[in-house]
Computed example of a mutant assay.
Amino acid sequence: MSTQESSSIINPSVYLNYLSTEEATIYEVGRNINLATLGALIWDILSSLPDERKLIQGGRGSTVLIAYFLARPSALAMVILSVLEQTGPVSNCKLIAVISAAFQGISTATASYLFLRRVHAVYFGSKGVQYVFNFMWFVVVCASCSLFYDAIHGYQEIADTKHCIRQQDSVALPIAFGVPLWFDAFVYYAILHKILSVHKQGQKKGWRSFFCAPKGLPHFSRAVFEGGQQYYL
């Protein structure tokens, strides 16, 4: 924004003075959502520390374990940077946005990989299904990389207030977040379909069956069913 416009504003240090009423409302709502997400994520991570300590002590090194311990810190870093963009001070908005996009890509790739491994476990004898979901996971990773385009071309500083705003609308953002959502939905459906097909053969399956674990499921199948629900939600 120009220097002349800045000088005409009574309090140029307040970033909301440079935004329209609609833009300011969207900006403030987005900031509050990010702050709430940050608080919930920190609480979730702290509450899981005892279980994660047991995983480190008793678990062997594996790609699943590595993915698990990369997903959560990278998601936390991404949310922190998103909050910083809207609360300031930020000296380089594009740089922060690019770093945030990198953490978002790592978080999405690793979290989706954990869900992918569930498909491999449930469809352990169906190589064709595994290959299909492997390809879908690769598409998820590529879609997440589209955030870099949005980070480079879509963010700028609000005048000289050290606050960042996303100005340019593009298809990068819905692709980066929409494709992983569809992937998780397909994985969730595939896992539940397999469990219900094995344990409820010959019985009619309605929509309720995909949200409520049927009675009579073995303990392991019920754990996979409920664990998939928790992850997807």
Rank of each mutant, 00 (worst) to 15 (best):
F186R: 00
L16N: 06
W207L: 02
V98P: 05
F124M: 03
W137S: 05
V122G: 03
Y188G: 03
Y113Q: 07
W137G: 04
V79K: 03
L84C: 08
A159K: 00
K204W: 03
L46F: 04
A97T: 13
T63Q: 11
D44F: 05
A185W: 11
V140Q: 10
A102T: 13
P218L: 10
L35G: 04
L116V: 04
L233Y: 06
K205I: 15
E23P: 08
I99K: 01
D44S: 15
T63Y: 14
S7W: 13
V14P: 04
S221N: 07
N134M: 09
S62K: 03
G154Y: 09
F133W: 02
F220K: 13
I165S: 08
A111E: 12
F148M: 07
R72Y: 09
F69V: 11
P73Y: 00
S107A: 15
S146A: 12
H199V: 00
E157R: 06
P12G: 07
L81H: 03
E23K: 13
Q230R: 15
S82T: 11
I195H: 01
F183W: 12
K94S: 14
N34T: 07
V29M: 11
V29G: 05
V119F: 10
I165Q: 04
S62M: 06
T110D: 11
T37L: 06
L16P: 03
V83Q: 09
L192F: 00
I33T: 01
T108V: 15
T110W: 01
Q4D: 14
I80G: 10
Y113I: 11
S6P: 02
F211L: 14
I26G: 14
S221E: 15
F177S: 02
A36C: 10
A102E: 08
A102N: 09
V83T: 10
D44H: 03
G125M: 08
S107C: 12
H219I: 02
H153D: 03
L65H: 05
Y232V: 13
L116E: 00
D150E: 11
T37A: 10
G206L: 08
I99G: 03
E28C: 09
F210K: 11
R72Q: 07
M1Y: 13
G202E: 11
Y188T: 08
T87M: 09
Y113K: 05
P214E: 03
S170H: 03
Q57Y: 08
S209I: 01
S82N: 04
I96R: 00
F225G: 11
C145E: 06
S126G: 01
